[in-house]
Design a protein around this nucleic acid. Structure first.
Lengths: 116, 116
DNA sequence: CAAATGAACCTTGCAATACAAGGTACTATA
DNA sequence: TATAGTACCTTGTATTGCAAGGTTCATTTG
């Protein structure tokens, strides 16, 4: 992921950002991520999440580790890499900017001098 | 546009919202919208904007009106319809929610009780 | 007055991606 | 041993942002 592109990505979706925020706290596996996001009122489904996790892993943002579970099959725990942590820091900044932009648009300060 | 769908849309892009925010202030035409968004640090290009305006118009959110210009060809001024204004109010609320969700995720309050 | 420039409009094709739907494998329980 | 539950993943479709290219009209310039 390059940072130039991040604002563009952010326009499309907050999802990557939200998932990385989750993983900043602690490693997690797909079904847990879905539950956690649901508990934060953000809906995600498997068909969205799996490709996204793979994408982030291929971009070097995440790595995973198989871990046995006491109930059911083993789980693939994803965690942020060093690179992922740095990227996330930049996404934090992008989110700040985006929120600021929206605030400006909401307040109407975007008005240009009347050039007519 | 149905409101059920709006949060989903918002995940993908803030663009519709931002454009409707602009038009809440006053009617505007495509090139001006691009300039205004640029001045608010949000990049949009023609190939994105025209289809989007058409979509919003077809959904009943916008209407337009031709207006002569002192320089160059006439301009198509877009404005929010009644319905568009109502939808925008709901988008305001969706944005609130999204921002709150992000805040929760940033703070780590999303952690579920450890079910192991 | 012809040509170039600029400002407005719009369309087409591509790539990314969210989601619905469906599929596989392992574990535990009935 | 069959069913349910939990985990993994893939495929196909629809949306949509964007790059690139195209048209029209008015003004300016050669």
């Amino acid at each position: 992921m390059n940072v130039e592109n991040s604002k563009s990505q952010m326009r499309k979706g907050m999802l990557e950002y939200c998932i990385m925020l989750l993983l900043r706290r602690r490693p997690s596996y797909a079904n847990e991520i879905i539950s956690l996001l649901k508990s934060a009122d953000m809906i995600v489904v498997e068909g969205t999440l799996y490709p996204l996790l793979t994408r982030l892993k291929n971009d070097g943002m995440l790595r995973y580790e198989w871990q046995e579970s006491k109930q059911g099959p083993p789980r693939k725990y994803y965690a942020l890499t060093e690179e992922g942590q740095e990227a996330l820091t930049q996404l934090d900044a992008s989110w700040e900017e985006l929120a600021k932009t929206v605030a400006i648009l909401q307040s109407g300060q975007h008005l240009l001098p009347h050039t007519e």
